[in-house]
C-alpha cells in the first residue's frame, strides 16, 4: 500500500483527472452547440428571404437570473473551501432556485412564442429559424436540468457535511464549473439568437 501510494505521487498531473474529464465533456458540448448554431447559419444563408420573429423580452430577465446564479454558485464554492457549510448551503439553495426559475422563465417564453404564432413545426413558414430557436433553447434547458441534478447532489453533500475543506471538494467544484459553463453557453446562445434575428 505504502509503495503504491509513493509511486502515485510521481504522476504527471496537470489537473485532477475527473476535472479533466469534465473539461473534455464541456468541449464536446461546445461542439454540439457549435454544430447546431453553424447549421443555423448555413441554413440561413441558403434561404432567400429569411423571416424574422420577435425574441420575447422575457429572455433578458432569464439571462439576468442565470447570470446571477453563477455568482451564488461561486459563493457556495468559496464558502465550502472555507468550511462554512451553512452559508454554502444558502448559496447552493439560491442557485437551485434561480435554476428552477430560469426553467420556468424559459417555459413562459415558449408560451409567449406560441401565442405569438411562432410554432416549433410550422408548415406555413418558409424557413426554420423558429425551429432552431426551440432546438437551441430546449437543448440548453435539458442541460440545465442535468446541472440541477448535479446541484442537488452537491446540496445533499453540503448538508451532510461531506466536504472536507481544502481536500474533498471535488464534486462541488465540478458542479460549479459545469454550471458556469451552462451560464456562458446561455449568454452565447442568447447573443446568437439576438443577432440572427436582426438580418
Amino acid at each position: 500500500m505504502a509503495t503504491t501510494g509513493l509511486n502515485m505521487a510521481k504522476r504527471n498531473y496537470i489537473v485532477h483527472p475527473h476535472k479533466f474529464n469534465l473539461w473534455l465533456a464541456i468541449i464536446s458540448l461546445i461542439m454540439v452547440f457549435g454544430g447546431l448554431t453553424s447549421a443555423y447559419l448555413v441554413a440561413r444563408s441558403m434561404v432567400k428571404q429569411p423571416e424574422f420573429f420577435d425574441i420575447p423580452n422575457l429572455l433578458w430577465i432569464n439571462t439576468g437570473i442565470i447570470l446571477l446564479s453563477s455568482f451564488s454558485m461561486q459563493f457556495a464554492v468559496w464558502r465550502v473551501r472555507k468550511g462554512d457549510e451553512k452559508q454554502a448551503l444558502i448559496g447552493l439553495l439560491l442557485t437551485c432556485l434561480m435554476g428552477i426559475v430560469f426553467l420556468f422563465g424559459q417555459y413562459s417564453v415558449y408560451q409567449e412564442m406560441v401565442l405569438g404564432g411562432n410554432y416549433f413545426v410550422d408548415p406555413m413558414r418558409a424557413d426554420d429559424s423558429v425551429s432552431y430557436f426551440y432546438i437551441l433553447t430546449g437543448l440548453h434547458g435539458t442541460h440545465i436540468i442535468a446541472g440541477l441534478i448535479a446541484l442537488f447532489f452537491a446540496l445533499i453533500k453540503t448538508g451532510f457535511k461531506m466536504y472536507k475543506p481544502g481536500k474533498k471538494i471535488l464534486s462541488i467544484e465540478m458542479t460549479a464549473t459545469f454550471w458556469h459553463f451552462l451560464d456562458l453557453l446561455w449568454v452565447y446562445l442568447f447573443v446568437f439568437l439576438l443577432f440572427t434575428q436582426q438580418g
Binding site: 464536446s28 461546445i30 454544430g35 432546438i135 437543448l139
Partner: peptide, 16 residues
C-alpha cells in the same frame, strides 16, 4: 471528442 458531438446535432435535427 470534437467530431462525434456534431453527428449528435445532425442526428437530433433528423430525429425532429
Amino acid at each position: 471528442v470534437l467530431s462525434f458531438p456534431v453527428l449528435l446535432s445532425a442526428a437530433l435535427l433528423l430525429f425532429m
